[in-house]
Design a protein around this nucleic acid. Structure first.
Length: 973
RNA sequence: GGGCGUAUAGCUCAGUGGUAGAGCACUAUGUUGACAUCGUAGGGGUCGCAAGUUCAAUCCUUGCUACGCCCACCA
């Protein structure tokens, strides 16, 4: 036997890097298994800006456990890995770095800035992938991906173009959630509502033209939490059934400050119960009012806007905002408007009120509803197939309770705003040319110049969505060539600097049409939604690079990935088998993967979706930098080893519950690793080494048969738990087998055999079995604790292959009931004896004599077969099958036997009596309870027969035990 | 307002229609050439409250209480 001699204490740091490098450089994370059944997981790509936090540790540990398990089971296991470009997050990081140098993004061109981001990525982008390696994650790094790799960009563009052509992506002018700090639109999901203390201001709006309410008032009171938006008010709404206001519907209000005359309209939105029952309507700055405005016939294009992109006051289209308010920040404007109205005597009262306030989840700024043109995905249409897939079980959500949340969101899904006013990201593949409009008077199509190329006005441009600029040009050519006549006023043309279009239009060959590309980029989640298939090489059918799509298409930026070009990889690994993610990204990512995957692949992205909770701080609080209660997983790895941290994560992961951080428990699993280490050391020093076979060796001794059976039972538990994704149950099964069965009993029971105390007849067999069992432990534990198990695998002897690619156990034997009974008898004897000694204050090490008159043949055989163990563990001299000599003695029960251990002069008879009486009381109580149940005719009639049988058996056992104890007491006199 | 989850030993959590388990902590102790990051023994719970279903409820049903999370336009 070779291998290496183990140190006394397990030192994780000494082996982790060594094995990880070995696995990776030897290609063991994805051994070639062309004939094996594929098994695929894609890793939620962490932000390239990120570093490993405790949530990643949980998420990736669970995935690694599954992928290592499936790899050991012989599957062609692929764990796809990569990072996400994380648009907003990454741009913010780089901008913050510039700020630290008194610099800013706008000092650079877009191209220059993006280059800086790439530089940053090259420098720091590897942090998290290095950290994932430290955790032991066995991903396929040879195919590492980045969501801005050229092939990924190709996929993103194709998806955008196809969805556009199918009418599932469109441009629309509506209110968006605008982040005035980041100056971009964000989606509904990126808005967090927080409760903020604010006010409810009641203002008097004067009625115009001497109109009065029925009660004689010359004004109408409106209440608002946002006084500043009154500068863009376009109506006052009242409920049509509200008697107070019925008479003034259709009349006008003359707004203070602006003097704008706006109508009083009837709308169901106005709640007579709330405030005064009259509501100011600002369609351009409030989601409700937008709808009210539309119902009142105001077109989005006509809605007044009073803010710029930073939410500072700008003049409205009607020019009515007082000049001294222009340029004020929205919160300053709020104060000022209140002051002005108060000074005019129009402030009726102010209420304190808790306001639901929207915040951007990235920038932390208060979100402003702002009227812009943005790109929207028709999520409602795309959501239908995934819902059906969950309904009919093609996607299984684990735990099932999340289904309801999934459906609730999908059923009420809103159009998804996917355009972002950022520089870092996938630029939208849309190009703009002049709009052509029918001039109704002339009956001619004419280009509309006025608004172009300024602003976001959808109706002033013609959109060409295409895979490439050339393709867009071609589309534009085809489009404009339909028009026979092109007139236009040269003066206007010149003014807007777009003479080139005229020249182009009138040129012979129609070449070189200038189009402007959409400035915006796509929501990060738009691209990560393609992760399950774009990482596998989709789309195969599009042209290879270069395709000149964007400034990010620099080959130097791309991570080298070996894409297969024939589609085999995609065919083999899509659908993925499982997705593991935190429930916090169910909507952001999981649902969108399901939508895009089903739309473009026609099949579910994964067969199962496992959602886990959050890792919380020890006190149950959410971890956050601001609270300062963040636990660094790398620190835990340094202190206890990656194996301990991983085992902790697995053991604590029960479905549907958050994981609470408990460092003591991590420490406990480090101790567990040390325990295993020392058990292996014991084996090693006793000539036990690597097993030669996967199947269990032949065993004739009960102890060996028993432990083989225990392996089989543990394996069954483990497989069941893994099938159900019960990580806690799986971890506990192997933990208790190793510690409670293998270390506490098996090793102790074989010590006499190995030392020759039992005559040496089972030496070789026991060494073979012990070696085999240890091997099974290493394999079964490997998914949870890959480092220590690989080290021990190697240390225990020569191996044909590494543990990571070993074979999952298949004992091929049934549990031997006889052997199990025999060993459990021994365990009971030893345990009961130890308990009795402790309770009677007898030194644990004291060697005692023992008598057992008239043993049953079975018991006698057990005793004779296990003299070594009884001698060593029970510290009893050979049990004599004869009545004990008279005198004080203690009575030890084991199975049907009552062993008498004389303790002349040592024992405190009263103490032994008390001990037996206590035990007797317990037995009698149990027996009585069972007897009562059995005497109840209803129980015997109605209970399941098995339950009745069990009650009878239990009663018999307890009654016998009570009888034995009574006899023992009698012996004591 | 809607939805979901959780309440079991001092702490963190499993669990089952037949009166409860783990780890840590605690108490006592240290004998056998793997291990003190250990061994041995032990104490500790009317399984949130109430009603119902059942022969039997910690487990199923309903209500209540407490805590947490998600979604939602109440100005």
């Amino acid at each position: 036997m070779t291998g290496t001699t183990l140190d006394k204490t397990f030192d994780p740091a000494a082996i982790e890097a060594k094995w990880y490098d070995h696995w990776e450089t030897q290609g063991l994370f994805r051994p070639a298994r062309p004939d094996a059944q594929p098994f695929t997981i894609v890793n939620p790509p962490p932000n390239v800006t990120g570093s490993l936090h405790i949530g990643h540790a949980l998420d990736n540990t669970l995935q690694d456990i599954v992928i290592r398990y499936e790899r050991l089971r012989g599957k062609d296991a692929l764990w796809v890995v990569g990072t996400d470009h994380a648009g907003i997050a990454t741009q913010m990081v780089v901008e913050r770095q510039l700020e630290a140098k008194q610099d800013k993004r706008t000092n650079y061109t877009r191209e220059q800035f993006i280059d800086k981001v790439w530089e940053w990525k090259a420098e720091s982008g590897g942090t998290i992938t290095r950290q994932l390696r430290r955790l032991g994650c066995s991903m396929d790094w040879s195919r590492e991906q980045f969501t801005m790799d050229p092939h990924f960009t190709r996929a993103v563009v194709k998806v955008f173009v196809d969805l556009y052509n199918q009418g599932l992506i469109y441009r629309d002018k509506r209110l968006v959630n605008w982040d005035p700090k980041l100056k971009t639109a964000i989606s509904d999901l990126e808005v967090e509502t927080r409760e903020i203390k604010g006010h409810f201001w009641h203002f008097r709006y004067p009625l115009a033209d001497g109109v009065k309410l029925d009660n004689g008032a010359d004004h109408i009171v409106v209440a608002t939490t946002r006084p500043e938006t009154m500068l863009a008010d376009m109506a006052v709404a009242v409920n049509g059934d509200d008697p107070r206001y019925k008479s003034v519907i259709g009349k006008q209000v003359k707004l203070p400050l602006t003097g704008r005359l706006v109508p009083i309209i009837a709308d169901e939105h106005a709640d007579p119960e709330l405030g005064s029952g009259a509501v100011k309507i600002t369609p351009g700055h409030d989601f409700n009012d937008f709808e009210v405005g539309k119902r009142a016939g105001i077109k989005p294009a006509e809605m007044l806007n009073m803010f710029d992109a930073e939410a500072k006051v700008v003049q409205t289209a009607d020019g009515l905002i007082p000049v001294d308010l222009a340029g004020l920040d929205r919160f300053d404007a709020r104060k000022r408007v209140v002051e002005l109205l108060e000074s005019e005597g129009l402030l009726e009262r102010v209420e304190d009120r808790v306001i639901q306030t929207p915040y951007g989840d990235r920038g932390g700024a208060v979100i402003e509803p702002w009227l812009t043109d943005q790109w929207y995905v028709d999520a409602r249409t795309l959501a239908q197939p995934p819902m059906q897939a969950v309904r009919d079980g093609r996607i299984e959500i684990v735990p099932k309770t999340w289904e309801k949340t999934f459906f609730n969101w999908m059923e009420n899904i809103q159009p998804w705003c996917v355009s972002r006013q950022l520089w870092w990201g996938h630029r939208i593949p849309a190009w703009y040319g002049p709009a052509m409009k029918m001039n109704e008077e002339l009956g001619e199509l004419r280009p509309v110049y006025i608004a172009w190329p300024h602003g976001f006005s959808a109706d002033s441009k013609t959109i060409f969505v295409a895979n490439t600029f050339e393709e867009a040009q071609q589309k534009a050519n085809n489009f404009y060539s339909q028009f026979q006549y092109f007139g236009g006023n040269p003066k206007i043309v010149e003014k807007i600097d777009h003479i080139s279009f005229m020249e182009w239009f009138h040129s012979e060959n129609k070449e070189g049409l200038a189009l402007t590309r959409d400035e915006d980029v796509l929501d990060t989640w738009f691209s990560s939604a393609l992760w399950p298939f774009a990482t596998l090489g989709w789309p195969q059918d599009s042209a290879p690079p270069p395709f000149g799509l964007s400034e990010v298409e620099n080959p130097a930026h791309g991570v080298s990935t070996s894409l297969d070009t024939n589609g085999e990889l995609l065919k083999r690994h899509y659908p993925n088998d499982l997705l593991i993610s935190g429930f916090d990204i169910l909507f952001f990512w999981d649902a969108r993967m399901a939508m895009q995957g089903m739309h473009f692949m026609g099949e579910v992205p994964w067969k199962r979706l496992y959602l886990h909770g959050l890792v919380r701080a020890a006190d149950g609080q959410k971890m956050s930098k601001s609270k300062g209660n963040v636990v660094d997983p790398l620190g835990l790895i340094d202190k206890y080893g990656a194996d301990a941290l991983r085992f902790f994560m697995a053991a604590m992961e029960s479905q549907g519950r958050d994981v609470k951080m408990d460092e003591k428990r991590v420490e406990g699993y480090r101790n567990f690793a040390t325990k295993l280490w020392n058990a292996a050391r014991f084996c090693q020093t006793n000539g036990i080494g690597a097993s030669q076979s996967v199947a269990a060796p032949a065993a004739t001794s009960a102890v060996n048969q028993w432990i083989i059976g225990e392996v089989a039972e543990t394996l069954a538990e483990l497989d069941k738990a893994m099938a159900e994704l019960r990580f806690d149950a799986a971890a506990n099964a192997i933990y208790h087998f190793v510690w409670d069965r293998f270390c506490d009993w098996y090793i102790e029971l074989i010590k006499p055999v190995l030392s020759g105390a039992e005559g040496g007849s089972f030496d070789d067999e026991t060494r073979a079995v012990a070696g085999w069992v240890l091997d099974q432990i290493l394999v079964m534990l490997h998914p949870f604790m890959p480092f220590i198990t690989e080290e021990l695998w190697s240390a225990m002897g020569d191996r044909p292959h590494e543990l990571i690619v070993a074979q999952w156990p298949a004992p091929g034997v049934a549990v031997n009931r006889e052997a199990k009974r025999e060993v459990e008898w021994l365990i009971a004897l030893i345990g009961n004896l130890r308990t009795a000694k402790a309770e009677l204050g007898i030194a644990p090490g004291a060697r005692l004599a023992a008598w057992l008159p008239d043993p049953s043949p079975a018991t006698r055989a057990i005793i004779e077969r296990n003299t070594g163990a009884i001698d060593r563990l029970a510290r009893l001299d050979a049990i004599r099958f004869a009545p004990a000599p008279a005198g004080a003695a203690m009575q030890i029960g084991a199975g049907d036997a009552n062993i008498v251990v004389p303790l002349e002069g040592v024992i405190d008879i009263a103490a032994e009596k008390a001990r037996l009486e206590k035990a007797l009381a317990v037995s009698q109580k149990e027996a009585k309870s069972l007897e009562g149940r059995l005497n109840n005719p209803a129980f015997v009639e109605k209970a399941r027969p098995e339950a009745v049988d069990k009650a009878r058996a239990d009663f018999a056992a307890h009654a016998a035990e009570a009888e034995r104890l009574t006899a023992a007491l009698a012996r004591l006199g």
